[in-house]
Design a protein around this nucleic acid. Sequence first.
DNA 1: CAAGACCTATAGTAACGGCTATATATGCTC
DNA 2: GAGCATATATAGCCGTTACTATAGGTCTTG
Lengths: 156, 156
Amino acid sequence: MTRSTVGKPASPVMMDAKSHAAGFRKARDARRSELIEDYVELIADFLETGGEARQVDIAERLGVAQPTVAKMLTRLSDEGLIVRRRYRGIFLTDEGRALAKRTRERHHIVETFLAALGVSPETARTDAEGIEHHVSEETLAAFKRFIVRPGNSSRE
Amino acid sequence: MTRSTVGKPASPVMMDAKSHAAGFRKARDARRSELIEDYVELIADFLETGGEARQVDIAERLGVAQPTVAKMLTRLSDEGLIVRRRYRGIFLTDEGRALAKRTRERHHIVETFLAALGVSPETARTDAEGIEHHVSEETLAAFKRFIVRPGNSSRE
DNA sequence: CAAGACCTATAGTAACGGCTATATATGCTC
DNA sequence: GAGCATATATAGCCGTTACTATAGGTCTTG
Ligand SMILES: [Mn+2]
Ligand SMILES: [Mn+2]
Ligand SMILES: [Mn+2]
Ligand SMILES: [Mn+2]
């Protein structure tokens, strides 16, 4: 419609539509992998803290019902990230282990960064749980730099 | 590390299950409001940059199909955030406008923060689109502090 | 004012992620 | 080894967010 902007008070211009859409798309993609990442990371936690990764344990940790976990595990299994051994627990494939490693490192960096920024440990933990999935490599690098030398991150 | 037990190679302990679950729950809740926030913010952008907020425009910006927008708008309308005027575009209710304001401020702070941290404008924009929805008030305050005085964020 | 362009609505489908209820398999204990 | 407790699987439901295809309005323009 582009009605003639005569007396209008300097309306700022929106960003390029294509870039905007690309940003939203990326966020949607991240949303789709959030759960997978959390599951794989959690399973790795269980396995490496000496315990087994059983459905009931995972369900309790995530705060969801056991059948919800069962269904999700089918998806993880379909994607080749885990192996299920009935009544023996869940195990990670090589691919799953690799994803868990990356994911956990990223999670740790995000949480540590928030704490370094002055956020309380409790909030850092909570916020990191969601933020982690939307942090690009570049931003992650910036977080790392800040953790090492707070205050030296951007000023040249 | 608690290397008390013999043989076993220092298995660290997982955090409290209840807190863990609470964190996941909060992230899930945030996920449910992500879309609503993005829509309302985007509609406000359209309206305040002199244009109209039409379904086709919104669809293009978000990178989704028009019927997807139509359905989502029904939800926004049901929740009292918008008013639809056929062929005249979408308008925000008072409640919608209030949500848009909060959301946009938060978005802006997150993006500005990332840039201040040394992240490229492009990446800052992209990452902020996802991160914004998972940033608590406390973290937002920390971001603001950093923007004002980079490097002075974590001192008491 | 009629045609066509453009916008919106609706129908039908699918994947995902959650739930409850219930069936079945396994492991433990006596 | 039988019984019971526990873990897992399955069925069926729902809401959300996407899609395509298509029908139906409205606006503009020749
Ligand atoms: Mn995580
Ligand atoms: Mn997470
Ligand atoms: Mn936003
Ligand atoms: Mn967003």
